[in-house]
């Protein structure tokens, strides 16, 4: 059924890592302008979903589809795209653990990223966004996010504290303005004040044209980003979806009710835990 807005549509997604199936059939549809929360215990597959959407080479999609479906019904197959093509198609992943790139200033990195995302057909070697325009925009965004502009001169995530990394991810989100963003625990490792600031920042960046999937263990990040839907992942499946009140319930009471309500998924979770423990030994 055509929708009034563009959607990220995930259907029956199965994903394996090193031969081990982590996602066992995920269905999820996010429209632009919507905020969805994805919760679930550690190891349930939340981050795997983020990586699979972005196209990490170690995450093998064995079944299912991930598509961008336009308001006119046009479909673009994300799984057929390289990670950078996905970024240029308007998909963003805020990493739970961003990589450092020593020697490369955040500003120079972002200038490449912004240029490519705004000119999806750009070939390497073609002009970058004019430095003056880029700098003006960057400084304005940093000021909106209450960030010291000196931050842009630092090397990408090199020697950053956990909080600084997360703020750098938010800055990139603000500059790249994707159609769809997956924020993978953008609140982890932050103190209460920092989470509040992150929550406000994300709310300011988002809006009617951005679909956001917030992966979190806490409800605090959702304070300023009231989810249209909350999804609970267990054992590689989304087992339950609800409104914002579901996030509050999970935050207060944990996952016991979910585990007992979905014994099959709970069993899958346990099996996965055991096999990963065996692999670690």
């Amino acid at each position: 059924m055509p929708s009034a807005t563009e959607q990220l549509v995930i259907k029956g997604l199965h994903v394996s890592v090193e031969g081990q199936e982590i996602l066992k059939g995920v269905d999820l549809t996010i429209g632009r302008g919507e905020v969805h929360a994805l919760m679930g215990p550690n190891g349930s597959g939340k981050s795997t979903l983020g990586y699979a959407i972005m196209g990490h080479p170690s995450y093998e999609v064995t079944a299912g589809s991930v598509e961008l479906v336009g308001a006119d019904g046009s479909r673009r197959d994300l799984l057929a795209m390289e990670p950078d093509e996905r970024a240029r198609a308007g998909v963003f992943l805020a990493f739970q653990r961003p990589m450092s790139i020593p020697g490369v200033r955040l500003a120079d990195f972002l200038r490449h990223a912004v240029t490519n995302v705004r000119n999806p057909d750009r070939k390497e070697g073609q002009e970058l966004m004019p430095m003056r325009d880029f700098r003006n925009e960057l400084k304005a965004k940093m000021s909106e996010l209450s960030m010291d502009t000196e931050f842009a001169r630092r090397y990408v995530n090199d020697g950053f504290s956990g909080g600084e990394m997360k703020r750098a991810e938010i800055l990139q989100l603000a500059m790249l303005r994707p159609k769809f963003a997956v924020l993978d625990e953008t609140d982890s490792g932050l103190d209460a004040d920092a989470v509040r600031l992150a929550s406000e920042s994300i709310a300011r960046i988002g809006g009617a044209d951005m679909g956001i999937l917030i992966i979190t263990h806490h409800e605090q990040l959702l304070e300023h980003n009231i989810p249209l839907k909350t999804h609970v992942m267990l054992g590689g499946r989304i087992v339950e979806s609800g409104g914002p009140e579901l996030a509050q319930e999970l935050h207060k009471r944990g996952y016991e009710r979910i585990r007992s309500a979905y014994p099959e998924a709970a069993a899958a979770e346990k099996a996965l835990e055991e096999s990963s423990r065996a692999a670690a030994v």
Binding site: M54, G55, H56, P57, E82, P83, D84, R86, A87, R88, F92, L93, F95, P98, M99, S100, I101, F109, L110, H112, A113, N116, V117, E124, Q172, L176
Partner: peptide, 11 residues
Amino acid sequence: QIFYARARGLS
């Protein structure tokens, strides 16, 4: 590192 940069649109 390469994946991280590609996820931001760099080839």
